[in-house]
Computed example of a mutant assay.
Amino acid sequence: MPSETEKSTPAPTEELKEAHKNERAEVESDGITIPSHVAGSGTLDRLIDTARDYALAAASDNTLKAYAKDWAHFARWCRLKGTAPLPPSPEIIGLYLADLASGSGPSPSQSASRSLSVTTIDRRLSGLAWNYAQRGFALDRTNRHIATVLSGIKRKHGRPPVQKEAILAKDILAMVSTLPHDLRGLRDRAILLLGYAGGLRRSEIVSLDVHKDDTPDSGGWIEIMKKGALLTLNAKTGWREVEIGRGSKDQTCPVHALEQWLHFAKISFGPVFVGTSRDGKRALDTRLNDKHVARLIKRTVLDAGIRSELPEKERLALFSGHSLRAGLASSAEVDERYVQKQLGHASAEMTRRYQRRRDRFRVNLTKAAGL
């Protein structure tokens, strides 16, 4: 029986599947080889396979899929314009970026497409650079045909980043209160409380295992102690530890919620958060997809009546997986350094971007300067 995640996650299109397969093939074949003047051997061939495995691990599957989508879009654009994507041409790429920013449409005969944001265009360019590198080419992003056009796009179309709304303490309490007390409800309650208290990314939540090295795709593991839980995460910025203390009462304690889920789901090995059977009475073996966390947040936001003055579509657009991280940063009344450490940020400035509520004038430099 398929898990609830597998049933509700739409399959990618055949075009994107093929593009993703091609991206992996580039790394597996052309990306890692031995020089042509060196004779092959069994030992070298095995090392090539090992090196290719490491090369594939340099980017996550989600990143590879995004890069595949970027390349597929650019290749199609080139075909429609009567040119080729290879070898890289700074002039053509500059025109491509201008087309993305202006939303002029894929061809004169077709209706205009939506112009893309500066952030998306910048990411598309990064995807192209990665794709060219896998094909043995270097894309010079400093070339004037690319750099100057991109600089102009940022100057003309740049906007402040659109931030997701923070889920505050009263919100998370209202959200978990909407969950049932069956096995699925225990799991989702643990996901929300642990993600909130730890300031975790949704990918970090679902990648947790019970112990170190339980599964090959583990992104970290947990250790439950008397005073709380210690999470060791292989996060976006590298390995880090996250301490989650016990709450003031069992109903809202993330560690207690985690213990309850593991106990009743009979999970003692492998992924912490897995799917459940259709009747919600039995835990399956399949690790949850990170999209489950996003869907869970949006569903419980609606059920809890958060921002009910807005239409449903607008309410759903306000919240995402990052709302948990922003909620912790905005609600924790502690020294900023502790929040920075919990979120795994390299700088205090990045942490401040997550703080939707803070006293911006707590340090008054005007008065400190004598005015």
Score class of each variant (00 low, 15 high):
Arg114Glu: 12
Pro161Phe: 01
Ala72Ser: 14
Ser8Glu: 14
Asp303Tyr: 08
Asn22Phe: 06
Ser203Thr: 11
Arg159Tyr: 07
Ala112Asn: 06
Asp49Thr: 14
Leu296Asn: 01
Ile167Glu: 00
Pro271Asp: 01
Val27Cys: 11
Gln251Ala: 15
Ser218Lys: 04
Ile92Leu: 12
Ala25Asp: 13
Gly370His: 13
Gly245Trp: 05
Gly103His: 12
Ile167Gly: 00
Val27Lys: 06
Ala197Leu: 09
Asp122Asn: 15
Val176Gly: 04
Gly321Met: 07
Ser41Asp: 10
Arg202Pro: 00
Val27Asp: 07
Gly321Arg: 04
Glu15Ala: 13
Asp122Gln: 15
Ala283Asn: 06
Ala368Phe: 08
Phe361Cys: 02
Asp61Cys: 02
Arg358Ser: 15
Arg114Trp: 03
Ser331Val: 05
Asn62Thr: 12
Glu14Pro: 06
Ser207Pro: 06
Trp77Met: 05
Ala112Lys: 13
Gly247Ala: 03
Leu95His: 11
Asp171Met: 00
Gly195Gln: 03
Arg46Thr: 12
Gly158Ser: 10
Ile297Ser: 01
Ser104Asp: 10
Leu365Gly: 03
Val272Trp: 02
Lys7Phe: 11
Lys298Gln: 13
Thr33Cys: 01
Asp53Gln: 13
Leu44Cys: 04
Tyr67Leu: 03
Leu200Glu: 00
Asp70Ile: 10
Glu6Ala: 15
Arg362Gly: 15
Leu193Glu: 00
Leu44Tyr: 08
Ala55Met: 08
Lys154Phe: 00
Ala68Gly: 14
Lys249Phe: 05
Ser268Met: 08
Lys65Trp: 10
Ser3Ala: 12
Leu371Tyr: 13
Thr366Asp: 15
Glu333Lys: 15
Lys227Met: 09
Leu192Arg: 01
Gly103Phe: 10
Ser151Asp: 09
Leu316Gln: 07
Leu233Glu: 07
Tyr96Ser: 02
Thr300Tyr: 05
Pro271Ile: 01
Trp221Gly: 02
Thr5Asp: 14
Gly275Thr: 04
Leu179Met: 10
